[in-house]
C-alpha cells in the first residue's frame, strides 16, 4: 500500500548562506495492507520528515513514494489532493482549523468533501467523538480553545472518521489519559483489521508494542556523514 524506494531529501536554506542540509538518502520502506509500522529513532532523526514526505507535505528530493498507485514524489497537486481526500489520512500533533467552526463539523469535514450527506456525516462524527469521550457540550464549540488532550482527540476523530486505506499517525496517544489511550489503540487495531496500512510514530513503547508489527529505525536513512 505504501511503497518507498530510494527516497532522499535535503533542505536548501537560501537565506542562510545557501546552506544545504541533507537529511535522508536511499530510504526504503514497504507497508502492506493491515500492517502497522512504527518509525523509531532519536529525536531529530527524521521520523516526522519521513511522515511529511509520505503525505506530500515535504517535497521529495529523489526516489519514489507510492501510495495506492500514486507516486507522491512526482504527483501533481491535484493528484495529491485526491489521494488525501480518499486514500491517505494523517493524524498530526497539531490541530489546524478555521476558527469558529464547531468541533463536530471539523470532524465531519473529511466526509463532507467526499460528498456524504451532511446529516449522515455529522452523526458519524458525533459517534466517534462520543467514543473518544469528548463531552457532548463541546461538540458545538470550536476546538481552538480546547486543552491539548481534547484537541488531540479531535485530531484523531478527524483522521479515523473516514476509513482511509492508508494512515499516518504522529504520536496519536501522546497527552491522552489511559482510558482514551485505550480507545485510540482500539481504533488503530480496528483500522488494521479492515486492511489499512499504517505508519506511526509512538513514543509510548507499550502502545507501540501492542499495535505495531514492525519497527523501522529511521537513523538508517540518514546520509552517511562526510
Amino acid at each position: 500500500m505504501i511503497e518507498i524506494t530510494k527516497l532522499s531529501k535535503s533542505f536548501l536554506m537560501h537565506n542562510q548562506g545557501a546552506a544545504r542540509i541533507e537529511v535522508m538518502r536511499g530510504a526504503d520502506l514497504s507497508v502492506g495492507p493491515g500492517e502497522c509500522v512504527a518509525l523509531t529513532g532519536a529525536s531529530g532523526a527524521g521520523k516526522s520528515t519521513l511522515m511529511r514526505l509520505i503525505y506530500g507535505n515535504y517535497l521529495a528530493g529523489g526516489g519514489a513514494i507510492r501510495v495506492g498507485g500514486v507516486d507522491v514524489a512526482r504527483a501533481s497537486p491535484r493528484e495529491i489532493i485526491a489521494l488525501r481526500r480518499e486514500t491517505l489520512g494523517y493524524v498530526s500533533q497539531f490541530l489546524r482549523v478555521v476558527p469558529r467552526v464547531p468541533t463536530r463539523e471539523v470532524v465531519a469535514e473529511p466526509l463532507l468533501v467526499l460528498g456524504m450527506p451532511e446529516a449522515k456525516a455529522l452523526s458519524r462524527a458525533e459517534a466517534l467523538l462520543a467514543r473518544l469521550n469528548l463531552p457532548a457540550p463541546l461538540w458545538s464549540l470550536s476546538p481552538t480553545t480546547f486543552s491539548g488532550g481534547e484537541q488531540q482527540r479531535v485530531n484523531i476523530a478527524r483522521g479515523f472518521v473516514h476509513p482511509y486505506p492508508a494512515l499516518l499517525l504522529d504520536e496519536p496517544t501522546a497527552s491522552l489519559d489511559p482510558v482514551n489511550r485505550e480507545v485510540v489503540l482500539d481504533l488503530i487495531e480496528a483500522a488494521k483489521a479492515r486492511g489499512a496500512a499504517i505508519v506511526g510514530i509512538f513514543h509510548d513503547a507499550a502502545a507501540r508494542a501492542r499495535v505495531c508489527g514492525r519497527e523501522v529505525d529511521v537513523s538508517a536513512f540518514a546520509p552517511v556523514s562526510a
Binding site: 533542505f11 511529511r52 506530500g56 507535505n57 515535504y58 517535497l59 497537486p77 495529491i80 489532493i81
Partner: peptide, 10 residues
Amino acid sequence: AGLTDQVLDD
C-alpha cells in the same frame, strides 16, 4: 507553485 501546505512548509 505547488500544493499549498507543501509550498508553505517546505
